Computed example of a mutant assay.
Amino acid sequence: MVDVAFASVPTPLGDVLAAVTPDGVAATSFGDGERVRAKMLGRLAATAAGDPALASPARDELAAYFAGRLTRFTVPVDWRLMSPLQRRVLGTLYETVAYGRVTTYGELAETSGSGVPARAIGSVMGSNPIPIIVPCHRVVAGNGLGGFSGGDGVDSKRWLLTLEGYLPPTLDWEL
C-alpha cells in the first residue's frame, strides 16, 4: 500500500481536493469529504497515512492557480491511476496545451497518436483522475465548449477557461 496525504483548497467552484503520494499528485476532485477521500484511497489502494507536508506544494499551487497567480503547475504528477491509453492522451494534453490555450477533441486525438477517434477523446477526458492539473477543461469541441464532468459540468469548464483568459468574463464573473 502507498501512503497518501490530502490537500483541500477552497475555490470559487467549491472545495478542490488533491491526493498526493510520494510520487506526486495522483488524483484531484471537485468536492471534499469522508466519502470522496475514501473513494480516492480505494482507487489508489492506499492508506491516508502520508505526511501532510507532502501535500503542501499541491495545496499551494492549486490555491495560487485559483487566485489567478499560477499559470503552470510544477508539482509532480503520479500517473498510476491511468491506463496506457489515458496516459498517452492525457500526457500529451499535459505537455502541449498551455494555460489560456485550448485544443479540440480531434486535434488531441491526432497529436497524441493514440489511434482513438475524436469522439472517444471525450471519454478519456471524463475519466481523467487529475482534473485541473492535467487540464481536461482545455479540450473543446470543434463547434463549442463540449462537455465537462468536473464540478458543475460545463459551467465549471467555462469558469476555468475564463480564469485562464481564453473566454471573456461575463458581467457577474469574479475570482
Results as ranks from 00 to 15, higher is better:
2 V>Y: 01
2 V>I: 15
8 S>D: 15
8 S>I: 15
10 P>A: 13
11 T>L: 06
11 T>G: 10
13 L>P: 07
21 T>H: 03
25 V>T: 03
26 A>E: 03
27 A>L: 09
28 T>K: 02
30 F>K: 06
36 V>K: 11
36 V>F: 07
37 R>T: 14
38 A>D: 14
38 A>I: 01
43 R>A: 14
44 L>I: 03
47 T>E: 15
48 A>M: 05
50 G>M: 09
51 D>E: 14
54 L>K: 02
58 A>T: 08
60 D>E: 15
61 E>C: 08
62 L>S: 05
62 L>R: 04
63 A>H: 09
63 A>W: 04
63 A>V: 04
64 A>I: 02
65 Y>A: 08
67 A>Q: 13
68 G>K: 09
68 G>I: 13
70 L>S: 11
71 T>E: 15
73 F>E: 00
75 V>M: 10
76 P>L: 12
77 V>E: 00
80 R>Q: 15
81 L>T: 05
82 M>P: 01
82 M>I: 07
85 L>I: 13
87 R>V: 09
89 V>N: 07
89 V>T: 10
90 L>V: 12
93 L>Y: 10
93 L>C: 12
95 E>N: 12
97 V>A: 11
100 G>E: 13
101 R>N: 12
102 V>P: 10
105 Y>R: 00
106 G>N: 03
107 E>F: 00
108 L>W: 05
108 L>K: 02
111 T>V: 15
112 S>N: 03
112 S>H: 03
113 G>Y: 11
113 G>V: 14
117 P>T: 11
119 R>Y: 13
120 A>I: 05
121 I>F: 01
124 V>N: 07
124 V>F: 08
124 V>M: 08
128 N>T: 06
132 I>W: 02
133 I>R: 05
133 I>Q: 04
137 H>D: 07
138 R>V: 08
138 R>P: 09
141 A>I: 01
142 G>D: 15
145 L>P: 09
146 G>H: 06
149 S>P: 00
151 G>T: 09
153 G>T: 05
153 G>E: 05
154 V>M: 04
155 D>T: 12
156 S>M: 01
159 W>F: 14
161 L>W: 12
163 L>M: 07
166 Y>T: 08
167 L>S: 07
168 P>R: 15
171 L>H: 12
174 E>F: 11
